[in-house]
Structure formats: C-alpha cells, structure tokens
Amino acid sequence: MAQLTSPPQILTTTLGKAMRWSQQQSMWPATFGLACCAIEMMATGTAHNDLARFGMEVFRASPRQADLMVVAGRVSQKMAPVLRQVYDQMADPKWVISMGACASTGGMFNNYALVQGVDQIVPVDVYVPGCPPGPQSLMHGILTLQDKVVSGELAR
C-alpha cells in the first residue's frame, strides 16, 4: 500500500457549487409544529425514521438558529402573523417546506378560520402532500429541497 501514489489531493470547483453544497448539508429546521403534521414531524425526527441521516435532526427552538421552516399543520388566521414573524426572524439563507394538505391549500377546512395555503404569507419551496404526510413523505420533501438547493434552482 505504501508504494502506491495517492491520488492528487486537489479538488477544483466553483465558488457557487461549493456554497450550494455547504448550504445543502446540515439544514436545521425550526420547530414550528402546529397540528397533526407536527406529530409526524416529531416521528420523522426520532429513532425509527431517523432524520439525522440527512443532517437535519437538530430542531432549533429559536428561529435565529434555523435555516428551514417546516410549516407542519393548519395555519389559523390568529396564527398567521406569528408565523410570518418567526419567518422574518430566521437568518438568510432560509427555506420553507409546506407540510400537508392544510398548510398547502387549507385542506378539508374551507372555512372562516384557516388561511387557505401558507404561501399567502411566506414563500414556499416544497409542498409535501398528504393528510398528514408520513415520515417517508416528509423525508422525500426534504431530499427534494436538498436537490433543488444543490442544483442551483433555489440559489440564495
């Protein structure tokens, strides 16, 4: 083994690629659980599904330390300003996943109380369908977001 020459220890890349690669890794979500989807989000983070495989298990209680907001559940009219404030408190670059039918479109509750889609308040990058989406769906949404970030589609 010692005689073998090691491959050249040089890596060439562009600044943009390196930046996108670093953004993709260790995206920390804010704990923004609202309703049923929050339970599935917690289930995604715990041992059975293990979100840590994607470097994302560190749910931050403070929005200042978070890169990703998973809007997990139905957003009521009373909650909408709070949601926007938490989004504004997050440091750039930041992304939003709308988890579940209620967050994406209002779901089955087409009434006076709910915001009919969280994209009326904050810009959404990935919509995860389901009521509630299972952990696999949420993980697929997260991987989709990572793909979009690394491909430059969501350059921030």
Binding site: S76, M108, F109
Partner: peptide, 30 residues
C-alpha cells in the same frame, strides 16, 4: 388559546353524518 382554531364545529354542519368522521378525527390528533 385559539391559535389552532379550525372552525371544525362549523365545518361539521356542512358534512353529512357519514362524512363527519373525517372532520372529528382531526380534532384530538393523538
């Protein structure tokens, strides 16, 4: 309280008795 008010009791009036289960099941989601 009221940050998760979804108007479910009102929605129940628009759903038939058979459909009502989809509504009430989302109240206490645990």
């Amino acid at each position: 309280i009221g940050y998760l008010h979804t108007g479910m009791e009102k929605t129940a009036e628009t759903l038939t008795f058979l459909q009502g289960g989809t509504n009430v099941t989302r109240m206490d989601y645990l």
